[in-house]
Design a protein around this nucleic acid. Structure first.
Lengths: 151, 151
DNA sequence: TATTGTTATACTCTATAACTATA
DNA sequence: TATAGTTATAGAGTATAACAATA
């Protein structure tokens, strides 16, 4: 399939927006001495109790990488390790209260940082963009049901 | 300003799409032993001749980081250094033929990798999404590290 | 035997501090 | 003095290989 101009422009937009969003996340993470990966781990573990291997698979990282990652987060009191009762080989990662608090703050900062950008759209356009993004990037991964957090 | 649900959903979409696009870029880069940062540098230097400090400012990295980055790319024959005739302190970075060829291949792979996603939209929707992305992420995202010199 | 994690090792990315050369 | 880059150093992120414990 020969790519036309509109496809080229779209890809460009997607890539640029990705870099900008990542820039925001990187900055917010850095303010708390957290890398992008640590940020992701916190986001995942926030409402899940994955095993090391689950995390590694989900993040596309080697298990040895996870060991170090979790080590550092554990040393900071953000995460904790437990042995699985089902499989004595497995290590389950869970978030601590401190980790949860920090994660909450991170989410709020992220929202605030992106608000000026998203605020440039009206409700109608926001909805439109959300739908289009969903369509384009349909995730083949089963997303975990998020409890409707009231606020 | 109290964020409503539609804003929350949009931010979620933007962040997830960013991670997915970054995933694609990371994978393609890895296939050529290039980090995300190296990828960006190639993309920038492809049609520009920035000085080290320009690159550092644009990427939001320290100059010393750039030294190492350019060292490695130079060692691989992808980039080259020249001294600026205007300012004997300044070092201008430029892309080699090999670097240009590789960059071209990277772009094509990127397009191919994202095509299944973008292909899910019709021409009309593609246009729509492109426009919306432009609107949302246009000017100064509050976090973008921009050199104070311009703007 | 296969799987789960950790450890040892090595390389890249990153920043800070100290330094050289030029402005 | 101030700016442009490099180097030395240190810590985090990453993968590969070798290993221990469990399945």
């Amino acid at each position: 399939m020969v790519p036309d101009d509109s496809e080229e422009a779209l890809i460009d937009g997607l890539v640029r927006s990705a870099f900008q969003v990542m820039g925001v996340l990187t900055r917010i993470g850095a303010e708390h001495d957290l890398s992008l990966t640590q940020l992701r781990v916190l986001g995942i573990v926030r409402d899940r109790r994955p095993r090391m291997s689950d995390l590694a698979a989900f993040l596309g990282l080697d298990k040895s990488t996870l060991s170090g990652l979790i080590d550092r987060a554990e040393r900071r009191g953000l995460l904790a390790r437990t042995t699985s009762p089902d499989d004595k080989r497995a290590v389950v990662v869970l978030i601590t209260d401190a980790g949860r608090d920090l994660t909450q703050r991170l989410y709020e900062q992220m929202r605030d940082a992106l608000a000026p950008a998203t605020g440039r759209l009206g409700a109608r356009q926001r909805h439109e963009l959300t739908e289009l993004l969903e369509t384009v990037l349909t995730p083949p991964l089963p997303s975990t049901p998020r409890p409707a957090t009231q606020r």
